[in-house]
Nucleic acid binder design. Structure first.
Length: 291
DNA sequence: AATCTAACCTGACCGC
DNA sequence: TGCGGTCAGGTTAGAT
C-alpha cells in the first residue's frame, strides 16, 4: 500500500536494521523487477555500507559509503520484511498478510549484523536503481519531481502556481508527481474530501481559499496516516495481529455507497459516497459536500 | 507542450 | 471446486 505515508513507515521500519551496516552479501534473484537492475547491481552494493536511509516522495534512498545511492520504489505490491540475526521475522510492512510468499522474494540484503532485509513484490511494478549521490537530484527519477508535501517548499502559493494553467481535473493534477510528490489515489481522494472539493473540478478553476484548504488537507491527511503507520508497527511488535493503520479511517476511499461521514444526524442527509473513474482510476467522493 | 491511454504483472475476490 | 471477469494503492512510453 505504498503512497508517501506507507513508504515513510517502511523507511522508519528499515532504518534501525540498515543504517550504519555493511551490505555483506546481496542477492538479486532475477535480472529485473519492472526494469532491469542497473549494471553490476550486486557488485556495486556488496561491501558498501549504508550511511543513511532517506525518503523522497514514494522512493526510498539508501546513501552508500561508495558515494552512490540505492534507489528503491515499491510500485504497487512491493514490501519489505526483516529477518533478524536470530532468524526471527522482525518487521513486515504487510504484517496482516497471512503466510510467507517466498516465490516473490526478489532481492535480499544481508547486513553485517547478521540480519537480512527481504524485498518481495508479486506484481514487480517496483524497481531499484543505483545513481551517483552527487547527481541524485538530477537523476531521471527526481529531476522533474515536485516538492515534498510535508516540506517547506510545498505551500498554497506553490500549488496555486502549479494549478493555474492546468485544465485537467484536480484529481489528475494531484496524482501528477510533478505538481506535488508522494500522493497516490487514496490520499488524493481523502484530501479532496477534507477540502470539500470535487475531484471533477478543473484545476484552474480553484479559488485561493480552496487551494489553501487543499494544501492544509494534504498535509493533515499525510501526517495522520504516518502516525497511524507507526501504530501499525507497534501493533506488529506486540504481535497482537490487529490490522491497525490508517485504512480503517478512510472517509471516502473504498466506501462507495456508504454514508458520507459529514451526513448530519438531523436534517437532510448527504448522498452516499460515489465512485467514478477518472483517467482509468477510481475516485471516491461525496456529491453533496464536495463541490 | 499538455494530456490521455495502454501497458507492465500477479493475486484476490465475486458471481455463476 | 473451478472458471471467467473485474479490480488493485504506481509509473512511464507512446500517441494524440
Amino acid at each position: 500500500m505504498p503512497e508517501l505515508p506507507e513508504v515513510e513507515t517502511v523507511r522508519r521500519g528499515l532504518e534501525p536494521t540498515l543504517k550504519g551496516q555493511t551490505l555483506v552479501r546481496v542477492e538479486a534473484r532475477r535480472p529485473d523487477l519492472r526494469f532491469a537492475f542497473p549494471p553490476r547491481f550486486v557488485e556495486r552494493l556488496e561491501g558498501a555500507s549504508v550511511t543513511s536511509l532517506d525518503r523522497r516522495a514514494k522512493y526510498l534512498i539508501a546513501y552508500l559509503s561508495t558515494d552512490e545511492a540505492l534507489i528503491m520504489h515499491l510500485g504497487m505490491s512491493g514490501r519489505f520484511s526483516i529477518v533478524d540475526e536470530r532468524g526471527v521475522l522482525a518487521f513486515d510492512d504487510y504484517a496482516y498478510d497471512t503466510g510467507a510468499d517466498p516465490k516473490h522474494d526478489h532481492v535480499v540484503l544481508h547486513v553485517g549484523s547478521g540480519a537480512k532485509v527481504i524485498y518481495n513484490d508479486p506484481r514487480r511494478f517496483g524497481f531499484m536503481d543505483i545513481v551517483p549521490t552527487a547527481s541524485l537530484e538530477q537523476s531521471k527519477h527526481f529531476v522533474a519531481m515536485g516538492p515534498e508535501p510535508l516540506g517547506n517548499q510545498f505551500s498554497a502559493g506553490h500549488l496555486a502556481q502549479a494549478l493555474s494553467n492546468k485544465k485537467t481535473p484536480i484529481k489528475s493534477a494531484l496524482l501528477d508527481q510533478g505538481n506535488v510528490a508522494g500522493l497516490g489515489n487514496i490520499y488524493v481522494c481523502e484530501a479532496l474530501f477534507r477540502a470539500h472539493i470535487s475531484p471533477l473540478r478543473l484545476s484552474n478553476t480553484l479559488g485561493a481559499k480552496e487551494i489553501i484548504a487543499l494544501t492544509d488537507a494534504i498535509r493533515a491527511v499525510l501526517i495522520e496516516a504516518i502516525e497511524a503507520g507507526g501504530s501499525t508497527l507497534r501493533d506488529f511488535a506486540a504481535a497482537d495481529g490487529s490490522l491497525g493503520g490508517f485504512q480503517e479511517r478512510f472517509d471516502v476511499y473504498g466506501r462507495e455507497g456508504l454514508p458520507c461521514p459529514r451526513s448530519p444526524a438531523i436534517g437532510t442527509p448527504h448522498e452516499p459516497i460515489q465512485r467514478i473513474v477518472q483517467s482509468g482510476r477510481s475516485s471516491f467522493f461525496c456529491p453533496t459536500c464536495q463541490t
